[in-house]
């Protein structure tokens, strides 16, 4: 039974970066903005958190700074798209390319630095309880944070007035503007939140999951998170299911390698990417379902005049 508990712990950990990044992007898209820069923001969050953890010796301060750095970076995107009215697809790509370049540039001296990362919880007496101990008390603290974030996003979007306004901005910015809501300011805030979440995702990878810094260490998780939002048809609870499914695919790949399965490691490593493509195709097939669930103004520019 302990093995099962261990597998659950590892699956949740593998899915957690996707939870952070996809929940953030979900809120951004709910406000009608498509930010393709998740991968870049994650990498900047990762290196910022790693540098702080290495220099200041505090991984928690690193997590905070990682989220902050990615949130700041997201505002470059926001200014170009929301104020200067550029194409969201092109600007998001620019953000990803810029983030990849920036993180590689400032991260070079930290390539082989070792830090003391954030460890899984070990509550005396509780985490060692048979069966449930590890399942309930044995996760990394950031895993609990990601679950709290899920609950917060769910409640915010479905149960608060501010969440309703944010969704209105994403569905019909014209109407939201007409009844007096500051559409552009709300979209700025949503992009800022998405940036902070992507930063948390990167920070989790750099100071808790691995913990180390490798160039391009997100390995496409930012793009998978974008696919996950579509897969989840813009519903937070389905983001969680999708993220943990992908976590288990990642895990299965490592387990198969460790078990010495006679398939080359490179072919096993293709699994998460192939799975993303297949799942995206299956879910997108139902065009009506996508149209009904996607925020109506997603990716479309809106300028109140």
């Amino acid at each position: 039974m302990n093995e099962i508990a261990q597998i659950v712990v590892l699956t949740l950990a593998a899915g957690t970066p996707l939870v952070f990044a996809a929940l953030g992007e979900l809120v951004v898209e709910k406000a009608g903005v498509l930010n393709l820069g998740v991968e870049g923001m994650m990498l900047v969050g990762a290196i910022a958190s790693f540098i702080v953890a290495a220099k200041a010796g505090s991984p928690w301060l690193g997590v905070f700074v990682g989220a902050l750095a990615a949130a700041l970076l997201s505002q470059i995107f926001a200014v170009i798209v929301l104020t200067l009215r550029a194409n969201q697809v092109a600007t998001g790509l620019a953000l990803s390319l810029f983030g990849i370049g920036l993180s590689a540039f400032i991260g070079r001296p930290f390539m082989s630095v070792v830090i003391d990362g954030i460890k899984p919880l070990a509550v005396p007496g509780l985490s060692t309880m048979p069966l449930v101990g590890k399942l309930i008390f044995g996760h990394n603290p950031l895993v609990y944070l990601s679950i709290a974030l899920f609950l917060a996003v769910q409640v915010f979007l479905q149960r608060t007035r501010a969440g309703l306004v944010l969704r209105a901005v994403g569905e019909s910015p014209q109407s939201a503007h007409a009844i007096g809501y500051p559409v552009i300011a709300i979209r700025y805030a949503a992009v800022l939140f998405g940036g902070a979440c992507a930063g948390l995702a990167g920070a989790f990878l750099a100071v808790a999951y691995t913990p180390s810094w490798v160039e391009g260490m997100t390995a496409g998780r930012g793009w998978i998170a974008l696919a996950l939002v579509v897969f989840a048809s813009w519903k937070p609870w389905r983001v969680m299911i999708g993220a943990y499914l992908f976590g288990s695919v990642t895990l299965a790949q490592f387990q198969a390698q460790a078990a010495g399965v006679a398939v080359p490691s490179q072919l096993l490593a293709m699994l998460p990417y192939v799975a993303t493509v297949v799942v995206l195709a299956l879910i997108s097939r139902d065009a009506t379902m996508i149209r009904l669930n996607a925020p109506a103004s997603l990716g479309k520019p809106y300028h109140p005049e």
């Binding site: 600007t91 390319l97 810029f98 920036l102 540039f105």
Partner: peptide, 17 residues
């Protein structure tokens, strides 16, 4: 040499702006 990637991204940002 990653400074190349940094400049590439910056160039595209400024162009879009």
């Amino acid at each position: 040499s990653a400074v190349t990637g940094l400049f590439q991204g910056t160039l595209l940002f400024f162009l879009l702006a």
